[in-house]
Design a binder for these strands. Structure first.
Lengths: 214, 214
DNA sequence: TAGATTGTTAATCGATTAACAATC
DNA sequence: TAGATTGTTAATCGATTAACAATC
């Protein structure tokens, strides 16, 4: 039987997004069915883990056959919440922010950039993709007048907390935080951190662990 | 007693990098000691978890006082392997690659960009930061002549596997992969994936789970 | 039906937490 | 010493895995 969202383990949620990525690739290749073993091999997992994860969606597989790719895509998107469009604003039009604004992967997954903000007078008015950079001062009024779901926070660490508070106060439901600082969320706003330097540190650790397996 | 790198739980390694970031901030503020409770609050963790994690480093704390900030920084950097400089190349000089090349956080943590590669003739020869973009064809010869530790892979998904194989064959120890595709590593090369669209999907899931807590 | 693969169980493994003795 | 905080234990919690009955 399908699990409700709150019953799905967090570790499973992370992998559901990975499965979705593979499935979308399979669908582009017109693959109709996929076995748990095949998905597992592609992602470096155990087949039993894939089956357990997918069983959270309900009985979507076909015994003796595998999982129907299109059905599985729909089921995962429904659980993740990406079966609808999400309106996203970008705060911070620096190098990283500009790169993120043009990132194709966001659009492909239904995340729609609708506005860009920065506090730098030199940047305000210039264009990022097709969006004129708006003054950070107008953040609240813009959010009040537009249905915005998420914000991508790509400002310096020194500004991150203050901007995050304002986003929360304005009622943004989720923040994807690229600033290298812990941002505390109040009750209703969810914060997801992506720290690029930390990812590189994790990689470095894996390397030194492999190099001298003590 | 200190644990060897292979004995440290993976979950702990991820947090050690977070502790390091906080500690560096504390050190800039000239804080001498920090208690587990204080670190825990800053990062939204339990104090007992902080103490358990830090105990992997050996007895670096002072009972009744807390952890000496400078000593703790040194101990974490030594375990993570970031107590030395790492030479890094960037493959892929698109929007994301260019943003990553200028990312301050890498430099601050001892990761030194030394070269940039791309296969696009339009980009080859142009400058990214102070680095002229080199032809991807010269990847192997460059790596053979320079001590390179890590590669940041910021090419399209369609090119990622082929470039990753070449990096592995050339003896690169670790790859930070930003391409939205599973890259399989052979024995000696470690791959760390960062998929930005997947991070946004995880955020979306947290939001829908919070909005309708079933 | 026979063959194959899912869905699910039970066992194992690893991570988190509270509590407190050790000790600065 | 008294107060405070670490380091560590034991219990709990959650995630992974192998195995196999269910069933397409």
């Amino acid at each position: 039987m399908p699990k409700s969202r709150s019953e799905i383990p967090v570790a499973t949620v992370s992998r559901l997004a990975l499965y979705l990525r593979e499935l979308q690739q399979l669908q582009r290749g017109a693959t109709v069915h996929v076995r748990s073993q095949s998905l597992a091999e592609r992602l470096g997992l155990k087949d039993s883990q894939v089956r357990r994860d997918l069983s959270c969606l309900g009985p979507v597989g076909q015994r003796g056959v595998g999982y129907p790719v299109p059905d599985l895509i729909v089921a995962i998107e429904r659980v993740l919440g990406t079966d609808r469009a999400w309106n996203v604003i970008l705060v911070g039009a620096g190098n990283l922010g500009r790169a993120l604004s043009g990132y194709k992967g966001f659009d492909q997954q239904g995340f729609r950039l609708v506005a860009v903000f920065d506090s730098d007078p030199q940047k305000i008015g210039s264009k990022v993709e097709e969006f004129p950079v708006q003054d950070l001062d107008s953040l609240e009024s813009f959010i009040a007048n537009t249905q915005i779901d998420l914000a991508i926070l790509a400002v310096p660490a020194s500004a991150a907390r203050s901007v995050a508070s304002r986003l929360e106060a304005a009622g943004i439901a989720g923040i994807l935080n690229f600033a290298p600082i812990a941002v505390h969320s109040s009750g209703s706003t969810t914060v997801q951190d992506v720290d690029l330097a930390i990812e590189l540190q994790r990689l470095a650790f894996s390397v030194v662990r492999n190099q001298r397996p003590q």
